[in-house]
């Protein structure tokens, strides 16, 4: 699976076609947003990819605790590394978009604060890994922290914005995607972009994982 090519080609095709269709396709004409509605094809998929990568990391942490196999731990770390990359991309693009539409790069929005805290959580995970010297101990304890933090992050990202008012659609007093922006023209392109970027994230993650494996094998031979 990891070494197959078809899904990598699919990722490339989906992302690049979503770029073209995202620029040229019809979009609903909305006040304030105007043409920037097209950002939905580029900004939102970053968050979807981030969540999927963190989910992969948690799954592999659980697997590691069950099996004690070192490869699972490597996969968990690399998924977090790539997830953080996507998180920063999402934050940066979101700040640029918010600056234009909401007039402030960091409006006090629960989703924004939530994702910033989630970033802190995974940076703490990396700090914890650095603090532990012994390899097995590091793998085990960081897996425990990863599993411990993940459900709280889910609460943070999904339940908190629903409790308080948010500028993002689908929470607080705002209408959801399906009401305004997600008309039938947008939907196929949006899902193409989301799946394409998720596959790309997984691809980068597997590349890093395979590199680590090669490195480890080389160290073993020496």
């Amino acid at each position: 699976m990891m070494r197959k090519n078809w899904w990598k080609i699919l990722a490339a095709v989906m992302v690049s076609s979503s770029v073209v269709a995202g620029f040229m396709g019809p979009v609903p004409v909305l006040p304030i947003l105007n043409e920037t509605i097209r950002n939905i094809y580029f900004h939102v998929p970053m968050w979807f990819s981030m969540i999927v990568l963190y989910l992969i990391s948690v799954i592999f942490s659980v697997k590691y605790l069950n099996s004690g196999e070192r490869n699972h731990d490597i996969m968990a770390v690399e998924a977090v590394n790539v997830g953080i990359l996507f998180c920063f991309l999402g934050l940066l693009t979101g700040m640029q978009w918010a600056n234009i539409t909401w007039g402030d790069p960091w409006p006090n929005d629960p989703k924004l604060n939530g994702s910033a805290i989630a970033t802190l959580m995974y940076l703490a995970y990396l700090v914890l890994r650095n603090a532990l010297e012994e390899e097995q101990k590091r793998a085990k304890i960081s897996a425990v922290y990863n599993i411990f933090a993940f459900p709280i992050m889910i609460v943070l990202l999904y339940i908190l914005p629903k409790l308080t008012d948010s500028l993002h659609p689908g929470s607080g007093g705002n209408s959801t995607f399906s009401d305004i922006d997600m008309d039938h023209n947008i939907r196929p392109i949006f899902y193409t972009a989301v799946i394409g970027w998720i596959l790309t994230g997984i691809w980068i993650c597997t590349l890093r994982y395979r590199l680590r494996l090669v490195e480890n094998n080389r160290n073993k031979l020496d």
């Binding site: 604060n113 939530g114 805290i117 989630a118 802190l120 959580m121 703490a124 700090v127 914890l128 603090a131 532990l132 101990k137 304890i141 425990v144 922290y145 411990f148 933090a149 709280i152 609460v155 943070l156 908190l160």
Partner: peptide, 25 residues
């Protein structure tokens, strides 16, 4: 968790703050 890292109090703060912020909100 942090006691396993050699009783480092900084680690305790770093690990617990992101987890406790949603509670605090």
């Amino acid at each position: 968790i942090s006691s396993k890292t050699g009783n480092n109090s900084t680690i305790m703060a770093v690990l617990s703050f992101p987890v406790v912020i949603p509670l605090l909100i």
